[in-house]
Design a protein around this nucleic acid. Structure first.
Lengths: 209, 209
DNA sequence: TAAAATAGAATGAACGCTCTATCTATTGCT
DNA sequence: AGCAATAGATAGAGCGTTCATTCTATTTTA
């Protein structure tokens, strides 16, 4: 351990990174409660126990904070997607359906969902946010599509799009129809998914022999 | 026509209603451009060419304006749904699929979509908005479900929920993946819809043969 | 002339952000 | 090791602006 200065600076930037994380944590909570534009910087500063001036030593401006939160959230989604891809290609389809079902049933994560709509609304008027959104969506599509392709699902791109549509609709439904029993949806959704994810067999569309 | 006073007062309230409509029109446009919380009252007043003080003679407060816009938008949705229900029960399914396809292809209404997410985001922190949202959703569900029931679709409630999920997801996709050709989606979506809307026939296990 | 319509200034709070001041900890020099 | 110099951490008041709303004054209409 000869890089003493390095270790010090690492420890330093580690501390900085920790502080940054705590700020983003607090901001996420505040934004979830009151929205991007309903939350003041002073509220966020208070929420993580620092002063406004101090917060601005870590955060360039509110906009950057919003983007950071959106990015972090999408990174989580990408990670979840990667966890899906570890199985054997043969089992993947079953695993996929299982995960989808699980995802529907356990989508109770309350304030994570809030930011979805906040983000979508923001993306409509903030081109930078729109770009982030579309960029991450593209990356998620590629990964998911690869899984389908490796599993021999025909027209994987379109299937990806349709499944993403369903998943995009689920949180909407959770808001618009919160009493709906998720289990019942799953029951009817599973055969639909199975039909969509059906690997190429004898009779099939132009896409596959 | 003996109720002269009535006619006068009607003409009066007619004028008031017109003014009100123009205010809501302007507000809708502004909110679509900058969001509920990104738009100031003065902006709305300017957009419909009246003063702030005057606007407050028609509008109780900003909140009421937001609610009015949301309500008006949902009324439009309800109306569109009713237009769907006029056909013969037998043809309804085909007509339904056709309308759905048409809806996907022509969902270019730009600023109407904006308010969807604005509304959903708002509903998460404003209980009154959430109630409106859920109330209108329930009414739309009932109507749509009735159509399915009259057409002999099994498990119409669940089918309604699933189709609403897909429809809820479409605008999400339009934002997250705007380059996606809608036509391709439709091609693959139609068989999915047909399977979902399949009327009860001989072999009809709970879900699949 | 009474009432309704309309305008726009005034209000006070909240906003995002910057500035300065203090305080702490590390560094270089001897 | 001990002190001075320096850099970073932190706080909070202050800036100019905008917000939603109200108030008062004026014009138009009945």
């Amino acid at each position: 351990m000869t890089q003493d200065t390095d270790r010090v600076s690492t420890k330093m930037s580690q501390k900085r990174a920790d502080r940054w994380d705590r700020i983003v944590d607090a901001a996420e909570l505040c934004f979830a409660k009151s929205g991007f534009h309903g939350t003041g910087i002073s509220t966020i500063a208070k929420a993580c126990g620092i002063s406004v001036g101090h917060l601005y030593h870590y955060v360039e401006n509110k906009e950057a904070l919003i983007e950071a939160i959106i990015r972090r959230e999408f990174e989580r989604h990408l990670q979840r997607l990667d966890e899906l891809a570890v199985g054997e290609p043969v089992d993947i389809l079953n695993e996929l359906v299982e995960k989808v079902v699980d995802s529907i049933l356990n989508e109770t994560d309350p304030f994570r969902t809030v930011l979805i709509f906040e983000t979508l609304a923001e993306a409509q008027r903030n081109p930078k946010v729109a770009e982030i959104l579309q960029d991450y969506d593209a990356r998620m599509r590629v990964r998911f599509c690869d899984i389908l392709r490796r599993s021999g699902v025909p027209s994987p791109e379109v299937k990806t799009e349709i499944i993403f549509t369903i998943f995009g609709g689920l949180p909407v439904r959770a808001l618009r129809h919160p009493e709906q029993k998720r289990g019942i949806i799953v029951e009817t959704m599973v055969p639909v998914l199975r039909q969509l994810l059906q690997p190429a067999s004898g009779m099939s569309q132009p896409d596959c022999a």
